[in-house]
């Protein structure tokens, strides 16, 4: 028997003028690191790093489920709403959770749409953070698929979404973690993956903001997997070049969900990224 050090609790915060009950997990102590999941998934993507004693010795990893995802319920009245995530609502949610948890300038680590919003926050609200780890993150990605495929009455959006995103998982990923990663997409609520993709594939407002990011104040490190078809190494490189002082690491054997699909392969890249971040918020300029 083994009981993991991860603990899960709920915090209620105000978002878009209404209360939202947010599920969050945490492990470790020291420097706070907020971890953002990808589209169509939840905090479980981060469980391997949260169970890594060497990392949590000096890092307090905190991951939360976005509303509509995982154990965070959708807002009251969701049954008549069309879920479409926006940059504004995403930013408001993250800032509300940070305030709700009383965190002082955490490091922000986000993957995919979480990486995209990390770069938006680096441009728009750097004073709230000490640094940014943007994983599988780029300036903008138009859809190479029809997002409406993933929410329709005659087919299972979760199963189709999982089958599509499997294209972004590296063949080096262990089979068990490949399927654990896909399971989260299969479980995603109706229309949620589509609503996340709406944010990811339609909002290009980050592009002109990238050169305004001040990495002397808050470092930005981008990590990308070679098997990522959605955010390719070329996309990440273009994005890093547009941010003065940003750094980039390419992972040859990983894909779009590195912390989830291949935890061992991702670990050294995440450790390297943490080393590039200020040790304490007070050290952030």
């Amino acid at each position: 028997m083994s009981i993991e050090p991860i603990t899960g609790r709920y915090v209620t915060v105000m978002i878009e003028g209404a209360p939202r009950r947010i599920y969050f997990e945490e492990a470790g102590q020291g420097r706070p690191v907020i971890c953002l999941h990808t589209a169509g998934a939840d905090t479980r993507q981060w469980r391997h790093l949260m169970n890594d004693a060497e990392i949590t010795t000096s890092n307090r990893l905190i991951a939360f489920d976005m509303p509509w995802h995982g154990k965070s319920l959708p807002p009251e009245g969701f049954e008549t709403q069309e879920y479409l995530l926006t940059t504004e609502a995403y930013i408001e949610t993250i800032l509300a959770v940070i305030d709700g948890l009383g965190l002082d300038r955490p490091v922000l680590a986000g993957c995919s749409m979480g990486g995209r919003i990390a770069l938006q926050l680096a441009a728009l609200h750097p004073e709230k953070f000490s640094g940014f780890i943007a994983i599988e993150a780029s300036d903008f990605q138009p859809a190479w698929y029809d997002i409406d495929w993933f929410h329709r009455p005659d087919a299972h959006g979760g199963e189709m979404g999982a089958a599509l995103v499997s294209a972004n998982i590296s063949p080096y990923a262990p089979a068990s973690e490949r399927w654990n990663t896909l399971w989260m997409f299969m479980q995603s609520g109706p229309g949620v993956f589509r609503g996340d993709l709406s944010f990811y594939t339609k909002d290009d407002s980050l592009i002109p903001r990238l050169p305004t990011i001040d990495t002397a104040q808050t470092p930005v490190h981008i990590i990308v997997g070679a098997y990522d078809l959605t955010c390719t190494p070329e996309d990440a490189e273009r994005t890093a070049k547009a941010i003065p002082g940003a750094t980039l690491s390419v992972m040859d054997e990983l894909g779009h969900f590195p912390m989830s699909e291949h935890p061992e392969g991702f670990r050294p890249f995440f450790v390297e990224a943490l080393e590039k971040m200020p040790k304490r918020a007070a050290e952030a300029a």
Binding site: W144, L164, S166, S170, P171, Y172, L229, T232
Partner: peptide, 16 residues
């Protein structure tokens, strides 16, 4: 191949 190069690992990769 057992472990295809990036892009060759999926039919949508071939398209991409």
């Amino acid at each position: 191949q057992a472990r295809p190069e990036p892009g060759f690992h999926d039919i949508f990769g071939l398209v991409k």
